[in-house]
């Protein structure tokens, strides 16, 4: 397992008003597979993503991440790590409501996604200028290659590398954010509703991108309400309700589960 989530409990508010967003949640995410997390609004799916990626603290339970590398290493515990450290361990994320950084160019957005911190030290350029410039050039080439691989030769985005993030439509920003995840050295990708607000043509592109991610050895955990998309793409589906994983199985098993049909899909 790449990611093991054990007995996660999180409550908001205190005293009488306390309610559990996550209530002893357990989930295993196998390496190299697409695991889809489905469930009604308020089931705690995005909260779980926030916990895994380090944005939500004050919860109880364990998250173990098998840090992939050439040497086998003991699983790392993520509970007390900051979001930036978790990202550097190889966990990337697509947010539900965020696209590109609005006032940075597409190229800068792509470069920042590379989770490479060469030159982060403010005066690094004074000491290792040539090496850092070479790294920057490599990043630019990689960004162009990724855009070419995903959207074809001479696609319009290659000519828009200097356009600002906010110049792209919402759907394009989602696509390009997904493309940005290829820049980084990520092993696990958390994709929060990648098809939300995106037109059908783009949805097909997103499917292709995610398949390419898995073919490139990445593991995907995605939240999605579009059941056709989930059925087409996911290897494993976990149904979430009341802050717990109620059922886990193949897409067909979950879609045909009577309780899922009644309480989530609205099919008698």
């Amino acid at each position: 397992m790449l990611l093991k989530i054990k007995n996660i409990t999180l409550s908001f508010a205190k005293g009488k008003d306390s309610f559990k967003i996550l209530n002893g949640l357990n989930l295993d995410v196998p390496k190299g597979k697409i695991t889809a997390l489905i469930g009604g609004n308020g089931a705690g799916k995005t909260t779980l993503f926030n916990i895994i990626s380090g944005f939500q603290k004050d919860f109880s339970g364990e998250i173990s991440y098998c840090h992939c590398g050439l040497d086998p290493q003991p699983p790392l515990r993520l509970e007390n790590l900051r979001a930036d450290k978790i990202s550097r361990l190889g966990i990337g994320r697509l947010f539900q409501s965020k696209g590109l950084l609005p006032h940075l160019t597409l190229l800068d957005n792509m470069k920042l996604c590379s989770n490479d911190t060469s030159g982060e030290f403010p005066f690094a350029y004074l000491f290792r200028n040539k090496k850092l410039l070479a790294i920057e050039n490599e990043k630019e080439m990689k960004a162009k290659n990724i855009l070419t691989q995903l959207f074809g030769e001479n696609n319009k985005y290659l000519g828009m590398l200097n356009a600002m993030g906010c110049d792209f439509s919402y759907g394009e920003q989602r696509l390009l954010s997904l493309a940005g995840l290829f820049m980084g050295n990520y092993d696990l990708l958390l994709l929060d509703e990648p098809t939300a607000g995106v037109n059908p043509v783009y949805i097909e592109n997103i499917k292709d991108i995610i398949r390419k991610m898995v073919a490139a050895g990445k593991t995907v955990l995605l939240i999605e309400h579009n059941m056709l998309f989930v059925k087409d793409l996911a290897d494993i589906v976990a149904y979430m309700d009341d802050g717990q994983i109620k059922f886990t199985g193949t897409p067909n098993e979950i879609i045909n589960n009577q309780e899922v049909k009644n309480s989530y899909l609205g099919i008698e």
Binding site: S53, G54, F55, R82, A83, D84, S87, R88, G92, R93, F95, K98, L101, P102, H103, L104, D108, K111, L112, C113, N115, D116, T117, S118, G119, E120, F121, P122, F123, A124, Y125, L132, G165, G184
Partner: peptide
């Protein structure tokens, strides 16, 4: 410097900045 880019990125969105490592 990359730091300049980072400052602009942080100014744009702290969560996206952090999730980029």
């Amino acid at each position: 410097s990359n730091f300049g880019l980072e400052v602009r990125a942080l100014c744009n969105d702290a969560a996206l900045f952090e999730i980029s490592g």
